[in-house]
Amino acid sequence: MRVALQVTCLNDALFPDTGKAVVTLLRRLGVEVEFPEGQTCCGQPMVNTGYLDEAVPAVRSFVDAFESYDAVVTPSGSCAGSARHQQRIVAKRAGDTRLQERVASLEPRVFELSEFLVDVLGVTDVGASFPHTVTYHPTCHSLRALGVGDRPRRLLEAVHGLTLVDLPGADQCCGFGGTFAVKNADTSIAMGSDKVRHVRETGAEVLVAGDNSCLMHLSGLLTRQRAGVRTMHLAEVLAMT
Protein backbone atom coordinates (compact mmCIF):
# COMPACT_ATOMS: atom_id res chain seq x y z
CA MET A 1 0.00 0.00 0.00
CA ARG A 2 1.44 3.35 -1.04
CA VAL A 3 0.62 5.96 1.59
CA ALA A 4 1.00 9.71 1.17
CA LEU A 5 1.13 12.36 3.86
CA GLN A 6 -0.95 15.43 3.19
CA VAL A 7 0.73 17.64 5.72
CA THR A 8 -1.67 20.61 5.11
CA CYS A 9 -0.57 24.14 4.24
CA LEU A 10 -0.99 25.30 7.82
CA ASN A 11 1.21 22.58 9.30
CA ASP A 12 3.76 22.96 6.52
CA ALA A 13 4.38 26.62 7.31
CA LEU A 14 3.49 26.95 11.00
CA PHE A 15 3.50 23.52 12.66
CA PRO A 16 6.07 21.31 10.88
CA ASP A 17 6.54 19.28 14.08
CA THR A 18 3.07 17.81 13.58
CA GLY A 19 4.07 16.56 10.12
CA LYS A 20 7.29 15.11 11.51
CA ALA A 21 5.28 13.39 14.27
CA VAL A 22 3.03 11.71 11.68
CA VAL A 23 6.11 10.43 9.84
CA THR A 24 7.65 9.11 13.09
CA LEU A 25 4.39 7.50 14.18
CA LEU A 26 3.59 5.82 10.87
CA ARG A 27 7.15 4.51 10.45
CA ARG A 28 6.96 3.04 13.93
CA LEU A 29 3.80 1.24 12.82
CA GLY A 30 5.59 -0.03 9.71
CA VAL A 31 4.12 2.36 7.16
CA GLU A 32 6.68 3.94 4.84
CA VAL A 33 4.85 7.20 4.29
CA GLU A 34 5.77 9.43 1.36
CA PHE A 35 5.52 13.19 1.05
CA PRO A 36 4.49 14.15 -2.51
CA GLU A 37 6.31 17.42 -2.96
CA GLY A 38 3.80 18.86 -5.42
CA GLN A 39 1.20 19.26 -2.67
CA THR A 40 0.01 22.68 -1.55
CA CYS A 41 -3.42 23.03 0.05
CA CYS A 42 -6.84 21.38 -0.07
CA GLY A 43 -8.52 24.64 -1.07
CA GLN A 44 -10.62 25.09 2.03
CA PRO A 45 -9.45 28.63 2.99
CA MET A 46 -10.75 29.93 -0.33
CA VAL A 47 -13.91 27.79 -0.45
CA ASN A 48 -15.09 28.72 3.04
CA THR A 49 -14.61 32.39 2.33
CA GLY A 50 -16.65 32.14 -0.87
CA TYR A 51 -13.81 32.27 -3.41
CA LEU A 52 -14.56 29.13 -5.39
CA ASP A 53 -12.75 30.10 -8.58
CA GLU A 54 -9.64 30.88 -6.57
CA ALA A 55 -9.75 27.38 -5.06
CA VAL A 56 -9.47 25.62 -8.43
CA PRO A 57 -5.62 25.69 -8.61
CA ALA A 58 -5.38 24.21 -5.10
CA VAL A 59 -7.83 21.42 -5.92
CA ARG A 60 -5.95 20.60 -9.13
CA SER A 61 -2.64 20.47 -7.31
CA PHE A 62 -4.21 18.28 -4.61
CA VAL A 63 -5.46 15.75 -7.12
CA ASP A 64 -2.19 15.88 -9.11
CA ALA A 65 -0.16 15.22 -5.98
CA PHE A 66 -2.22 12.45 -4.40
CA GLU A 67 -4.27 10.53 -6.95
CA SER A 68 -1.61 7.88 -7.54
CA TYR A 69 -1.62 6.77 -3.87
CA ASP A 70 -3.70 4.07 -2.21
CA ALA A 71 -4.22 6.18 0.88
CA VAL A 72 -3.75 9.82 1.80
CA VAL A 73 -3.29 10.56 5.50
CA THR A 74 -3.76 14.03 6.90
CA PRO A 75 -3.37 15.29 10.47
CA SER A 76 -6.46 17.46 10.11
CA GLY A 77 -10.15 16.66 10.31
CA SER A 78 -10.88 19.90 8.57
CA CYS A 79 -8.66 19.30 5.53
CA ALA A 80 -9.89 15.71 5.24
CA GLY A 81 -13.45 17.07 5.33
CA SER A 82 -12.59 19.57 2.63
CA ALA A 83 -11.10 16.88 0.40
CA ARG A 84 -14.03 14.54 0.93
CA HIS A 85 -16.91 17.04 0.73
CA GLN A 86 -15.86 20.38 -0.77
CA GLN A 87 -13.44 19.72 -3.60
CA ARG A 88 -16.28 18.24 -5.67
CA ILE A 89 -18.11 21.59 -5.42
CA VAL A 90 -15.04 23.41 -6.73
CA ALA A 91 -14.55 20.90 -9.54
CA LYS A 92 -18.21 21.12 -10.54
CA ARG A 93 -18.05 24.90 -10.59
CA ALA A 94 -14.91 24.78 -12.75
CA GLY A 95 -17.06 22.88 -15.27
CA ASP A 96 -14.27 20.33 -15.68
CA THR A 97 -15.82 16.83 -15.79
CA ARG A 98 -12.42 15.13 -15.82
CA LEU A 99 -11.45 16.98 -12.63
CA GLN A 100 -14.79 16.01 -11.08
CA GLU A 101 -14.12 12.35 -11.82
CA ARG A 102 -10.60 12.54 -10.42
CA VAL A 103 -11.85 14.24 -7.23
CA ALA A 104 -14.60 11.65 -6.82
CA SER A 105 -12.12 8.82 -7.23
CA LEU A 106 -9.73 10.28 -4.65
CA GLU A 107 -12.35 11.18 -2.03
CA PRO A 108 -12.68 7.74 -0.38
CA ARG A 109 -8.90 7.37 -0.13
CA VAL A 110 -8.42 10.47 2.04
CA PHE A 111 -8.20 9.69 5.76
CA GLU A 112 -7.87 11.83 8.84
CA LEU A 113 -5.06 10.46 11.02
CA SER A 114 -7.24 8.75 13.67
CA GLU A 115 -9.36 7.14 10.95
CA PHE A 116 -6.26 5.81 9.21
CA LEU A 117 -4.82 4.40 12.43
CA VAL A 118 -8.02 2.78 13.69
CA ASP A 119 -9.81 1.80 10.46
CA VAL A 120 -7.01 1.12 7.98
CA LEU A 121 -4.17 -0.06 10.23
CA GLY A 122 -6.54 -1.50 12.84
CA VAL A 123 -4.56 -0.24 15.85
CA THR A 124 -5.55 1.76 18.92
CA ASP A 125 -2.42 1.16 20.99
CA VAL A 126 0.28 2.80 18.90
CA GLY A 127 3.01 2.17 21.48
CA ALA A 128 3.14 5.73 22.72
CA SER A 129 4.03 6.92 26.19
CA PHE A 130 3.00 10.31 27.53
CA PRO A 131 2.74 10.53 31.33
CA HIS A 132 0.66 13.69 31.52
CA THR A 133 -2.89 14.79 32.27
CA VAL A 134 -4.58 15.57 28.98
CA THR A 135 -7.96 16.82 27.88
CA TYR A 136 -9.24 16.35 24.34
CA HIS A 137 -11.24 18.77 22.20
CA PRO A 138 -13.04 17.03 19.33
CA THR A 139 -12.85 19.50 16.47
CA CYS A 140 -16.09 20.17 14.60
CA HIS A 141 -15.07 18.93 11.19
CA SER A 142 -13.60 15.69 12.52
CA LEU A 143 -16.70 15.18 14.64
CA ARG A 144 -19.44 16.24 12.20
CA ALA A 145 -18.02 16.39 8.67
CA LEU A 146 -16.11 13.10 9.03
CA GLY A 147 -17.76 11.34 11.98
CA VAL A 148 -14.51 10.15 13.58
CA GLY A 149 -16.50 9.41 16.74
CA ASP A 150 -14.45 8.10 19.65
CA ARG A 151 -11.43 7.02 17.58
CA PRO A 152 -9.13 9.81 18.89
CA ARG A 153 -10.21 9.12 22.47
CA ARG A 154 -9.54 5.40 22.07
CA LEU A 155 -6.07 6.20 20.74
CA LEU A 156 -5.36 8.54 23.66
CA GLU A 157 -6.72 6.12 26.25
CA ALA A 158 -4.24 3.51 25.01
CA VAL A 159 -1.24 5.82 25.49
CA HIS A 160 0.97 4.60 28.32
CA GLY A 161 0.87 6.87 31.39
CA LEU A 162 -1.62 9.29 29.91
CA THR A 163 -4.54 10.46 32.06
CA LEU A 164 -7.46 11.62 29.95
CA VAL A 165 -9.91 14.00 31.64
CA ASP A 166 -13.29 14.93 30.16
CA LEU A 167 -13.68 18.41 28.71
CA PRO A 168 -17.03 20.00 29.65
CA GLY A 169 -18.99 21.13 26.57
CA ALA A 170 -16.48 19.22 24.46
CA ASP A 171 -18.56 19.07 21.30
CA GLN A 172 -19.11 22.83 21.09
CA CYS A 173 -17.08 24.75 18.51
CA CYS A 174 -13.94 26.57 19.72
CA GLY A 175 -14.73 29.57 17.53
CA PHE A 176 -11.87 29.34 15.04
CA GLY A 177 -13.81 28.71 11.84
CA GLY A 178 -11.13 29.81 9.34
CA THR A 179 -11.65 33.39 8.21
CA PHE A 180 -14.52 33.54 10.73
CA ALA A 181 -11.77 34.08 13.33
CA VAL A 182 -10.96 37.48 11.82
CA LYS A 183 -14.18 38.42 10.01
CA ASN A 184 -16.12 37.90 13.23
CA ALA A 185 -13.20 38.25 15.63
CA ASP A 186 -15.31 39.32 18.62
CA THR A 187 -17.65 36.35 18.40
CA SER A 188 -14.74 34.00 17.69
CA ILE A 189 -12.93 35.22 20.81
CA ALA A 190 -16.07 34.91 22.94
CA MET A 191 -16.48 31.28 21.82
CA GLY A 192 -12.78 30.58 22.35
CA SER A 193 -12.82 32.17 25.80
CA ASP A 194 -15.61 29.85 26.92
CA LYS A 195 -13.75 26.84 25.48
CA VAL A 196 -10.54 27.88 27.26
CA ARG A 197 -12.44 28.36 30.53
CA HIS A 198 -13.66 24.76 30.26
CA VAL A 199 -10.13 23.57 29.47
CA ARG A 200 -8.79 25.32 32.57
CA GLU A 201 -11.58 23.81 34.69
CA THR A 202 -10.29 20.32 33.86
CA GLY A 203 -6.90 20.97 35.43
CA ALA A 204 -5.22 19.29 32.43
CA GLU A 205 -1.63 20.18 31.55
CA VAL A 206 -2.14 19.63 27.87
CA LEU A 207 -5.02 20.34 25.50
CA VAL A 208 -5.02 17.89 22.59
CA ALA A 209 -6.93 18.10 19.31
CA GLY A 210 -6.67 16.74 15.80
CA ASP A 211 -6.56 20.12 14.06
CA ASN A 212 -3.79 22.68 14.51
CA SER A 213 -6.06 25.41 13.14
CA CYS A 214 -8.34 25.17 16.19
CA LEU A 215 -5.32 24.75 18.46
CA MET A 216 -3.65 27.83 16.99
CA HIS A 217 -6.68 29.88 18.06
CA LEU A 218 -6.95 28.25 21.49
CA SER A 219 -3.23 28.37 22.25
CA GLY A 220 -3.26 32.04 21.26
CA LEU A 221 -5.85 32.60 23.97
CA LEU A 222 -4.13 30.33 26.51
CA THR A 223 -0.70 31.93 26.20
CA ARG A 224 -2.18 35.44 26.26
CA GLN A 225 -3.89 34.48 29.51
CA ARG A 226 -0.69 32.94 30.90
CA ALA A 227 -2.92 29.94 31.57
CA GLY A 228 -0.13 27.42 32.01
CA VAL A 229 -1.79 24.93 29.67
CA ARG A 230 -0.07 23.91 26.45
CA THR A 231 -1.62 22.60 23.27
CA MET A 232 -0.45 19.58 21.29
CA HIS A 233 -1.66 17.92 18.13
CA LEU A 234 -2.90 14.35 18.57
CA ALA A 235 -0.10 13.14 16.24
CA GLU A 236 2.57 14.62 18.50
CA VAL A 237 1.20 12.85 21.57
CA LEU A 238 0.93 9.56 19.69
CA ALA A 239 4.52 9.93 18.39
CA MET A 240 5.93 10.19 21.94
CA THR A 241 7.67 7.14 23.37
Binding site: G50, G178, F180
Partner: peptide, 10 residues
Protein backbone atom coordinates in the same frame (compact mmCIF):
# COMPACT_ATOMS: atom_id res chain seq x y z
CA UNK B 1 -25.12 36.89 7.33
CA UNK B 2 -23.64 33.89 5.46
CA UNK B 3 -20.36 34.68 7.24
CA UNK B 4 -21.98 34.70 10.68
CA UNK B 5 -21.00 31.07 11.27
CA UNK B 6 -17.89 29.07 12.10
CA UNK B 7 -19.34 26.24 9.94
CA UNK B 8 -19.24 23.90 12.93
CA UNK B 9 -22.20 21.91 11.61
CA UNK B 10 -24.13 21.58 14.89
Amino acid sequence: LPYASSLCGA
